[in-house]
């Protein structure tokens, strides 16, 4: 029982990391209506800009993290303007957009690797002793990750429900044509979406780095399928679905390490993804018939 609760704690931390990245991907997927296979590279940008700020410019972690998050958002916007939007405007079919983002994944990850190298890195901050809170045993960094995730998710909730931009995003996610007809500025909303989801990816990357301690450029990308599993489980474009999907996948992945080696985390997520696709491909939250 003790072991169970212990792994449950790790599961919650994984879920927190996952929820940040999943909400970002789901929001972008919903608004733009295509998957971005280069998303893992945005995680790497956030992760490594923070690292560079800390090691090369000796900035404190918090400032480094803010710069990392903003850089990821800006990269996402630049990629959209330079590449993706040009294909979308021409009415390129979904097939080819997927190949384009697949190519972007290759370009961005290799570019990041050319800049930051292939080796493993870690943030120069003290890990601290694991705290024991009741049955749970977590590091301060992991507690912070959970805290930040909760704050970020509340912020996303407020953005989507209270701000005009958030409402425009939700409208585009529901029906792009209708949103356009009702006077929403499609272009601006798309760019803001890329910026916000890029920032969320950057934040997710930093959280991932804090959680795994050691990281490399491809760490975010190998996490991508876990993110996809959470997004599809929650139903594409459903933000709260993505949150719950992240929680479920995080817990399942965490608890599965009771039974099998944690080297198979990605495989467990994939197994959940396959089961979801076979049983309920529209996700647990989506309305049937609109898959």
């Amino acid at each position: 029982m003790h072991l169970f609760l212990l792994t449950l704690g790790f599961g919650i931390v994984t879920a927190a990391v996952l929820s940040l990245a999943s909400v970002g991907l789901s929001l972008q997927f919903g608004v733009t209506n295509y998957v971005n296979f280069a998303y893992g590279a945005y995680l790497a940008v956030g992760m490594y800009m923070t690292y560079t700020c800390m090691t090369a410019f000796h900035l404190p972690f918090l400032i480094g993290a803010v710069i990392g998050i903003l850089t990821a958002g800006i990269v996402a916007v630049i990629v959209d303007i330079l590449v993706l939007e040009r294909f979308v405007k021409r009415g390129t079919s979904g097939f080819f957009l997927l190949i384009v983002t697949f190519g972007l994944q290759l370009i961005l990850l290799n570019l990041a690797q050319a800049i930051w190298g292939v080796g493993f890195d870690r943030y120069p901050i003290a890990q601290g002793k694991p705290l024991t809170i009741g049955p749970f045993s977590v590091t301060v960094a992991q507690l912070e990750v959970v805290g930040v995730a909760i704050i970020a998710l509340v912020a996303v909730h407020l953005l989507l429900t209270k701000s005009r931009l958030g409402k425009a995003m939700r409208a585009m996610s529901d029906n792009k044509m209708l949103a356009q007809a009702s006077g929403i500025d499609i272009n601006a909303t798309t760019l803001w979406t890329w910026f916000f989801t890029g920032c969320l990816a950057g934040l997710g990357g930093i959280a991932l780095a804090l959680n795994t301690v050691e990281f490399q450029v491809f760490t975010g990308n190998s996490f991508l399928f876990v993110i996809f599993a959470a997004v599809i489980l929650g139903g594409i474009g459903k933000i709260y679905g993505a949150m719950l999907g992240a929680l479920i996948i995080g817990l399942v992945v965490g608890l599965s390490s009771l039974v099998i080696s944690s080297a198979y985390n990605v495989d467990v997520a994939f197994a959940v993804l396959v089961i979801v696709l076979l049983i309920r491909p529209q996700g647990i939250f989506a309305i049937a018939g609109k898959a």
Partner: peptide, 8 residues
Amino acid sequence: RSDYLAIV
């Protein structure tokens, strides 16, 4: 959907 297929 073709994107799911690509993911799988």
